[in-house]
Simulated scan of single mutants.
Amino acid sequence: MPAKTVSKSPAKKASAAATTAPQDLGPAPVVLLVGSEEHLADRAFSTLNARMRELDPTFERTDVSAAGYQKGQLSTWTSPSLFDERSLVLVDGVDAASEAFVEDVLEYLTAPVETVVLVLRHRGGNRAKKVLDAARAVAGVVEVSCQPLKRDQEKVDFVLADVRRARRRIDVEAARALVAALGSDLGELAAAVDQLLTDTDGTVTEGAVHRYHGGRREASGFEVADAAIEGRTGQALVLVRHAAATGVPGVVVVAALAARLRQLAKVAAAGRGRSADVAHDLGMAPWLIDRARRDLQHLSPEGLSDAILAVAAADHAVKGGGGDAQHALEKAVRTVGEART
């Protein structure tokens, strides 16, 4: 009986790319700045530029665009100098590159010039993705993720890291307050951190943040949900109206309320047990279990049920189900807040 042949899919090429944070970037044969967050890309390139200057104050820098590229230009930009001096070539807009650039850079990546640091800025999408794939296989390549920070906690971590690098301290609540005030723009958030560190001494407190940025506040859906579930009904209503005034969709606020109530319902149904064990069973972080249990001490089963029904009605309204969506949302917030005993 003839032996069976087993077809094998081609092995995936292993990536040689090392990843690094923007502020840790140093010279490498090829540097990838991938993602649409401009502040992270700018920070990475500024760091790289400074470190190149430390190594060679006379290095040559070339800034070009991949979109209007003409065949053969890359070899001109990356040609070794007569005395093997260092050079830095930043190619912007690789995600909009011409076919001529793709062809030339793929050829260049087979044998990068030792004295050249080639930076490829790609903001996302599938165009010229094969350039990224080829670059990631080059020995010594370094990649910096410039993806947007979408979650508030990611932005809080960003603030904490910036303050830590400055050898200062900031209260976590102060970092959260700063994100609440300026979280939609990462560059503005970073500038605010720098300003606070310049204008204050010692630990940066929540009070200091409110003194400088108390007039600006971007109410998030989860901020509304937290205030309502903790029984701060008046504050929750102020936040939900501010959210509407600053363009936060009602569906986002309702989703946050629903998510928090689902957590409470799941933890209530799980009963007693170690937080770590319950967290494992429910797929939640242990600190979320502890917070939910604290909240449940002030919520009756009937109150939780009423809150869930009110949020369901608001969800129907904000998704076009009829009635005044803002009124339904505020009613849900009030019901959640008043459910706390």
Rank of each mutant, 00 (worst) to 15 (best):
G231V: 02
W287I: 05
R291Q: 15
R274L: 12
I289G: 07
A255C: 05
A292K: 01
T200M: 14
A268L: 13
I289Q: 09
T203M: 06
A228Q: 03
Q235S: 09
Q235E: 15
R211Y: 07
E223P: 03
R272T: 04
L296W: 02
A219N: 14
R216V: 06
T205C: 08
V254Q: 11
V278I: 09
R294H: 00
R241V: 01
L288D: 02
G250M: 05
T203V: 07
R241W: 02
V252S: 15
L257M: 12
A228K: 04
T246R: 03
L237M: 11
R241A: 12
G283Y: 13
P286D: 10
T203K: 13
L237H: 06
V278M: 03
E218P: 00
V209P: 11
L237W: 05
L261T: 08
V224I: 14
D277S: 05
V267C: 01
Q263L: 11
F222I: 09
I229R: 00
L288Y: 05
R274I: 02
G271K: 03
A243I: 03
M284Q: 08
A255F: 07
Y212E: 15
A236S: 08
E223C: 02
A258N: 12
P286W: 00
S275G: 12
R232L: 14
A245L: 10
I289P: 11
T205E: 10
G234D: 08
A276I: 10
A292F: 09
A265L: 02
G234P: 03
R262T: 03
E218W: 14
G247W: 11
R260A: 09
L239H: 03
T246F: 09
M284I: 02
H210W: 09
S220N: 04
W287N: 06
R216Q: 09
G283P: 09
L237C: 04
A256W: 00
R262V: 01
D290R: 15
L239P: 07
L237R: 01
R294N: 08
W287P: 07
L257Y: 00
D281L: 01
R272A: 10
T203Y: 01
D295T: 12
R232W: 01
E218F: 13
T203P: 05
T200E: 12
Q263W: 06
V253M: 14
G221N: 10
A228W: 14
A219Y: 15
L237Y: 04
R291V: 02
D226G: 03
R274T: 04
G247M: 06
L264E: 07
E206T: 08
R217K: 08
E230F: 00
A244I: 03
D201V: 05
D201F: 01
R293F: 04
M284T: 05
R232E: 01
